[in-house]
């Protein structure tokens, strides 16, 4: 059976993409706001829960801290998940193109 976080929700997807570079929580939200051209603005509870969840599954990890903020980064396993999602989405996109 598929992993329970797959296919990735928009929130999880953006967080994993943002954490290809190390960031602390609030910076992840800012990064995502920019990446999505302002269309995805995460709220505090959603971000906290998603980071906890991704961390629990070993897709991201804490790599240090700046002051009291923890800095997170994607793990090898997390990168593999992104790769799978990319293939899935590319396939769906190819179906769009085929119909034109």
């Amino acid at each position: 059976m598929k992993h329970k976080l797959l296919p990735l929700s928009e929130t999880m997807h953006y967080i994993l993409l943002a954490l290809r570079e190390p960031h602390h929580g609030y910076a992840v939200m800012q990064e995502i706001e920019e990446m999505s051209n302002g269309s995805v603005i995460l709220a505090a509870g959603t971000l906290y829960g998603a980071i906890e969840n991704l961390n629990k599954h070993g897709w991201i990890e804490a790599v240090g801290s700046s002051g009291r903020r923890k800095i997170y980064k994607i793990t090898t396993e997390g990168s593999a998940v992104l790769k799978l999602e990319q293939e899935r989405l590319l396939h769906i996109l190819s179906l769009y193109e085929g119909s034109e």
Partner: peptide
């Protein structure tokens, strides 16, 4: 961690 993220917001 929980408080930290909320307080940042």
């Amino acid at each position: 961690d929980y408080k930290g993220i909320y307080e940042d917001f």
